[in-house]
Write a protein that binds this DNA or RNA. Structure first.
Lengths: 346, 346
DNA sequence: CTGAAAGCGCTTACAG
DNA sequence: CTGAAAGCGCTTACAG
């Protein structure tokens, strides 16, 4: 591998000049520039990113923590972030929650620890900035993290002490929109399957959902409130339990589309027809929502735009850029076929 | 941030000794070790990975290229790789195919270029080794790549000049198993939807599928051979076209589960019942296969084990480790409910 | 076992 | 505009 010394020698200039010519920082005569460029080409020179990182104290990389690479939620986010980073000539080091294969779904502490471990790992890798997809982190965790690494943006969660560094849709409002959609269609006997208990976005959406319902005088009995974990399996288990208690509801809200799909499958096998007998509404508007049968009516949050803006904000902070960033990511329901008129319609 | 000089001073030793104590390379007296450890703790010292990288000429990071972070295929792979890497105290820099949003599904050249760009990006980032998920790369591309970076393992594709660095199931055999499953169930009027044309794993499975069928005297007319792209949308479009030509088949093979699911949805909306009227068999045994309705009979390839072994092999090459690696990743069909007896059964 | 020194490959004041 | 030099924070022969 050629080093900058080699190109300086070949170009007949000092290494300082070579460096200035190559990096574009500092001025060089047209003549010197040309000779350096020639030498670079001749030697097929590529500056060492690690040497550069050491002297500039900037690794040129951003860490991103996501709870899980599997599932259909985080992939599109990684995709966007990769694109943004590469457009800015930076790269991404990604980590997800690792650990004991089977953590119980209500073991918040284990999930929290996984997130903390993954983030710690990234910090130790000396990333310039950190993107973290909200999960089981407490506000105190976030504060502690921001204390250590100010260049951390929280995605899909808002932690009150540092709103500027949080990028998220309003999940509470989104939950309300779900409730309104159900109500508007004339459903009052409703069931629900929530996501991971300690995930903040889940908590917000369920809170909004229930309180909007309450506003209109409908209360979901505990026996019709199931807890899932955002996975197919969790959704299926919850749907099974729900069914065991009898079909005393006309619609169910699933806190994400994967669980909605699992529920449709479960109900189908049990011989209850969706949406004729029971309507279902999902959440996320993920890719599969258009391909379940029936197609899913679901709540869409612009998660990719959220991630892009969070990423750009971070890039601006870390490298003094001024990429445009949005702050509003309004949720909306997208109507398809899984939600039909209920008994109280019209 | 404390540097190793600070800890050396505090511990009252030379920086060489401090370095040996901290890194564990080279011997130090128990006494010195203790003092260094104390100093490390007192200063909360973390060695700079980039300085270390510069002097050891090893960045401690492995690049991984996957065609797409979205979809349900690559997520689980990233998950495994992250786990393996972190267990070895290394990290992952990931890149996926970026570029113009809408590349036509048969624009092999554009896909190939995307892969080449992503890999180039990773190489420039000076990763110690490279994991690449096979995609539109030609054998010549692979050879050129191996020439430049010998520490590259190819996943899910085999390129003949360097079998040692390829980790993949035998997709050709897998295609044959699909054909045998269909034949065994008494189907002879068959349709199929292939995946991305230029993806090698797709080509192999379709080749195996068709030639095994031919061995038993069944030939699928062109009019029943659709081409998809592994996505829901592509599968749906292909299924729609298939239906337009009439229902003159009793079973269809979809080259992955997402397309199978899209097909089931499409057929369902068109009023043709799966599996009563037409059976379907998928490929991958992805997470959703158990949650379609009917549940999917599908071909399972142990892709995670494949990725893990490829990753370990690379780790062994790059860092002189000797992690165990497997070489056999046998495919098998997993029977569920979407494939019923056909007219020639029994 | 240990310390002083050179080196990894860049960047960036500094003096000219 | 330019070159010589110091520095980024480690590691690793080398001599003792």
């Amino acid at each position: 591998m050629a080093t900058i010394k080699d190109v300086a020698r070949l170009a007949g200039v000092g290494v300082g000049t070579a460096s200035r010519a190559i990096s574009g920082n500092g001025s060089v005569s047209a003549d010197a520039l040309a000779r350096v460029n020639e030498a670079v080409a001749a030697l097929n020179f590529r500056p060492s990113t690690t040497a550069r990182a050491l002297s500039t104290r900037s690794a040129g990389m951003i860490g991103i923590y996501v709870p899980d690479f599997a599932g259909d939620f985080y992939g599109p986010i990684l995709h966007c972030v990769d694109r943004e980073l590469r457009a800015a000539n930076r790269h991404m080091v990604a980590a997800n929650g690792c650990g004991p294969a089977d953590i119980s779904i209500d073991d918040m502490e284990a999930h929290r620890q996984q997130a903390l471990d993954g983030i710690e790992f990234l910090i130790e890798r000396q990333v310039d900035g950190l993107l973290v997809m909200g999960d089981a982190l407490t506000d105190a965790d976030c504060d502690a993290l921001w204390e250590r690494v100010p260049r951390l943006v929280l995605l899909n969660q808002v932690s009150p002490s540092n709103l500027l560094h949080c990028f998220s849709s309003d999940h509470e409002l989104a939950g309300r929109l779900v409730a309104r959609a159900l109500l508007a269609k004339g459903h009052r006997d409703i069931a629900c399957i929530s996501g991971l208990q300690y995930a903040h976005d889940n908590a917000s959406r369920m809170a909004g959902f229930h309180s909007e319902l309450a506003l209109h005088g409908v209360k979901i009995p505990k026996s019709r409130q199931m807890v899932g974990d955002f996975s197919f399996d969790g959704g299926h288990a919850a749907a099974t339990k729900l069914l065991k208690k009898g079909l005393n509801f006309t619609a169910v809200f699933c806190a994400n589309d994967m669980m909605a799909m699992a529920l449709i499958s479960c109900f189908g096998h049990a011989g209850v027809r969706v949406p004729e007998e029971v309507s279902v509404i999902g959440y996320d508007d993920s890719a599969l929502a258009r391909y379940t049968h029936p197609r899913l009516t679901t709540l869409s949050i612009p998660i990719q735009r959220t991630a892009i803006s969070g990423c750009r904000f971070l890039l601006n902070q870390c490298y003094g850029l001024s990429l445009p960033v949005e702050r509003e990511f309004p949720p909306e329901v997208v109507w398809r076929e899984s939600l039909l008129d209920g008994p109280h319609a019209g």
